[in-house]
């Protein structure tokens, strides 16, 4: 339910990046959405489209990349994709594993037509 605010923050980033490319035009912004970040991708995509519609930013496409939750084993350092909230290391059986991916809500890249 806060996706529109998130979309507005993404658009602000696009606008400030655009200032650094006078004469250029931003065509795409890539955003990483972690499994755990609490943001719904469809609602975010919709919110962004609504925000840019009929504005000079309309050509900007939002490219969302989903990042699954990844854990690292504190014992054997094995990295694995966590499914069904089972934190146990599939390699050595250790239960103490740390979340190292899946919390992202990051702008990854932008594409500019210079």
């Amino acid at each position: 339910m806060h996706e529109l605010g998130i979309a507005a923050s993404i658009l602000e980033s696009v606008q400030s990046e655009a200032l650094r490319h006078p004469g250029g035009r931003i065509t795409k912004v890539g955003v990483k959405i972690g499994e755990l970040c609490g943001v719904d991708r469809d609602a975010l995509q919709f919110g962004f489209e609504v925000l840019v519609k009929d504005t000079e930013w309309e050509p900007v496409v939002l490219d969302l990349e989903y990042i699954p939750r990844v854990q690292r084993c504190s014992k054997c350092a094995h990295q694995f994709r966590m499914t069904d909230f089972d934190p146990q290391c599939p390699q050595c059986g250790e239960f103490l594993t740390d979340c190292i991916g899946g919390e992202e809500l990051d702008i990854a890249y932008m594409e500019v037509d210079e």
Partner: peptide
């Protein structure tokens, strides 16, 4: 077309 790596948080201002 030019691709710029940004790598910053969406809620950077916050």
């Amino acid at each position: 077309m030019n691709r710029i790596e940004v790598e910053k948080k969406v809620l950077n201002e916050n």
